[in-house]
C-alpha cells in the first residue's frame, strides 16, 4: 500500500515506460506509413511501365496504330493515384518531402500520358476529351476542393474523360513550363484547361460539360 505519499521513482518509471511506448508507437506508425509510400511508389512504377508499353504498342502497330485499348485504363489509374496521394498528404502532411517527391513524379507521368493522348488524338483524328486541372491545397484556393469534387464526379460518370490534376505549387521545370504556356501562375486558381481552352477560377459542372 503506497498511502498518500507520492512515489517519485514510480512516477519516473512510468514516465520512461510511457515515453518508450509512445516512441515505439510513433516509430511503427511511421514504418507503416512509409511502407504505404513505397507501395505508391511501386504503383507509379507500374504505371510508368504501362505508359511506356502503350507508346511502344502505338509505335509498333503499323497496321492499326489507332486501335489501342489501354488508353482509358491508364487514365483512370493515373487519376485514382491522386486520391492515394491525397491520403498520404493527410497522414504525413502536405509539405512532407517524400509525398512531394511522389507528387512530382506523378505530375510527370501525367504530362507524359497527356502528351501521348494529344498525339493519338491528332494522328488518329480521335475525339479524346481532356481536362488539365491546376490546384493548390495550401489554403490559398478556397474553391479548389469543390472543383476537385466536381472533376471526380465527372471522371467517375464519364468513362472516356481524361482528367490530369496538377498541384500548382510543385516546383518542376517541366510542370513550370506547362504552367507558363497556359499562364497558370497569373490566373486565379483553380484553373481548368478543357480541350485546350483555359478557364480561370471555379468552373461549374454545367460549364465544364458544355466545353467538353
Amino acid at each position: 500500500m503506497e498511502g498518500k505519499k507520492i512515489n517519485k521513482l514510480k512516477i519516473f518509471s512510468i514516465f520512461i515506460t510511457t515515453t518508450f511506448i509512445f516512441s515505439v508507437g510513433i516509430f511503427f506508425g511511421n514504418v507503416i506509413t512509409n511502407s504505404q509510400l513505397d507501395r505508391i511508389s511501386n504503383l507509379q512504377q507500374d504505371l510508368r511501365t504501362q505508359t511506356l508499353s502503350l507508346e511502344l504498342q502505338y509505335a509498333l502497330a503499323s497496321q492499326e496504330p489507332c486501335n489501342l485499348t489501354n488508353l482509358d485504363i491508364i487514365g483512370d489509374e493515373l487519376y485514382d493515384m491522386s486520391e492515394l496521394l491525397a491520403n498520404m498528404e493527410g497522414s504525413l502532411g502536405k509539405l512532407n518531402p517524400d509525398v512531394l517527391s511522389l507528387k512530382e513524379y506523378y505530375s510527370l507521368l501525367e504530362i507524359k500520358h497527356w502528351l501521348f493522348l494529344e498525339k493519338v488524338s491528332k494522328e488518329c483524328n480521335a475525339d479524346i476529351p481532356i481536362i488539365l486541372y491546376f490546384y493548390s491545397n495550401l489554403g490559398d484556393c478556397e474553391k479548389c476542393e469543390r472543383q476537385g469534387y466536381i472533376l471526380t464526379y465527372l471522371k467517375r460518370s464519364e468513362e472516356n474523360l481524361n482528367v490530369f490534376s496538377f498541384d500548382a505549387n510543385i516546383d518542376n521545370s517541366v510542370l513550370n513550363g506547362l504552367k507558363e504556356i497556359n499562364k497558370v501562375e497569373e490566373g486565379e486558381l483553380p484553373v481548368l484547361i478543357i480541350n485546350g481552352k483555359v478557364h480561370e477560377g471555379f468552373t461549374e459542372l454545367e460549364e465544364i460539360k458544355e466545353n467538353l
Binding site: F27, G29, I32, T33, I40, E77, Y79, M81, E83
Partner: peptide
C-alpha cells in the same frame, strides 16, 4: 480502379 487497400495508419492512430 487501383483497388487500393491503403490503410491510413499514421502514428497517432496506432
Amino acid at each position: 480502379s487501383l483497388d487500393n487497400t491503403l490503410i491510413d495508419f499514421n502514428p497517432l492512430r496506432l
